[in-house]
Write a protein that binds this DNA or RNA. Sequence first.
RNA 1: GGCGCAUUCGUCUAACGGUUAGGACGCAGCCCUCUCAAGGCUGUAAUACGGGUUCGAUUCCCGUAUGCGCUACCA
Length: 490
Amino acid sequence: MNEVRVRYAPSPTGFLHIGGLRTALYNYLFARRHSGKFILRIEDTDRTRYVEGAVQDFIEVFDWAGIDFDEGPNRDGGFGPYYQSERLDIYKKHAQQLLEAGHAYRCFCSSERLEQMRKFQERSKLPPKYDRLCFRLSSDQIQKNIEQGVPHTLRMRVPDNTVIRFKDHIREEVEFNTDNLDDQVLMKSDGFPTYHLANVIDDHLMKISHVIRGEEWVSSTPKHILLYQYFGWEIPEFAHLPLLLNSDRTKMSKRQGDVEARAYPPKGYLKEALINFIALLGWNPGDEREIFSMEELIREFSIDRIHKAGAIFNLEKLNWLNTQHIRMKSDEDIFQMLKPYIENSEYVNFPKLYFLEVISLMKERINFIPEILTFSNYFFRDPETFDPAGVKKRWSPSAKTHLTALAEKLKDITPFTHTEIETVYRIYADESKIKGADLIHPTRLAITGVTLGPSLFEMMQVLGKETVLRRLLYAIGHFDDILKTAQQSA
RNA sequence: GGCGCAUUCGUCUAACGGUUAGGACGCAGCCCUCUCAAGGCUGUAAUACGGGUUCGAUUCCCGUAUGCGCUACCA
């Protein structure tokens, strides 16, 4: 195999969506797997749909996700420029070449005429194709039109009744008859090329070895092959990826969940989880492993194992993968990810060391990074409310007596470590002939206000003696009020 | 409508002619346990349909159905 060179070639008509991210990822994995190059090319030939900031968004998301391209905007690899809008001369030159060889012709038809023609064809149940009116123009007429400055496009001349076959790495052999192909516009009247022309020229000039793109391009591939043949160029390998779908099996779009990749990081998704997840949407290693790092994906990835059918983006599995990857992170890494949320919270003043301790207790209990702050806010503030159901279940008059006695004992514990605390609790339970649980639950409720959370004794250690005693004393002091409130809450 | 592509548990998927059709998410139950998670175990649930080919089809072929893509001077 020659050097592997692949590209992700988005059109900046919107921010990067999940499907695009997966296409880019597969290209990237394939390139790295084969020690090749991954190129980012911006296909900005449609000036009417251009979205400001889209290119910036692509680059930011790739940067976040760890998909680094070898060539592209601001990363010259000797095959630039990488914006198609800066390559207009190249397209013009090649278009001229096709024109001279008779593989393309000028079309002076107005968009009004084309539209009427299409409507008629639709009504008559004919295949919608250009009727080649301008192909039959005499050279005199063409000359006259040009002199009069009639705007025109350049269309490719598709041969009649010819079968075009190509081998797709994912779907075996695909076959088209050229009779079903339109004389595609190659150059628009504004001087910009269409996707088909620019794409083929750039893929060739940039020495792209494998075209890995979405399934929506399968039906245009025969046109591209024709162009390669017209130019006398070597045809690259093709792999058309299955589409990503909404939960109702329609093509993935907005309205249903977040399709823009940029929406995921702020929600607390790890790049490792997102990458892992989308890699598995249409690909699998052939065994039962499911957790992969980028390095492992690069090592294992193979085009031949890409699935054929479209896949629904299943958020629940992504969430599960997120918890898996969170648990594999160090406390320090999680702290770094949590930092922006801390800075935006009222807890900014707590020391880093304290957060690290909270993280080590919480990281196996959360699905998303920011939940460390929201689920366990009792690490940062005294409880103001007490879960009524928990109170009703756990607070008995005897609990008040025990809590009072325990508060007294806790004062003397030094160092205030979870083992020491637990020992005191266990001994007290034994002496009082009650179950540990009957002490633990009321204590938890008293110092956190809720019935869930990490191991009580470890939590007490992190909170510190002072805070624990303050909360305990408060709860004992308001014991009856809290109980009454809980009972009233039905 | 035409052309193309696809079709295994609800979802992501494995099985490339012979399996009690496997795994994962989700859901349910049990175990563990100071709660919640996590973990362990068990359960739940699928080859779209109809014909062939074959000793034998999830697997190969042909139809049908369904879904999706394309059918622009959009990509």
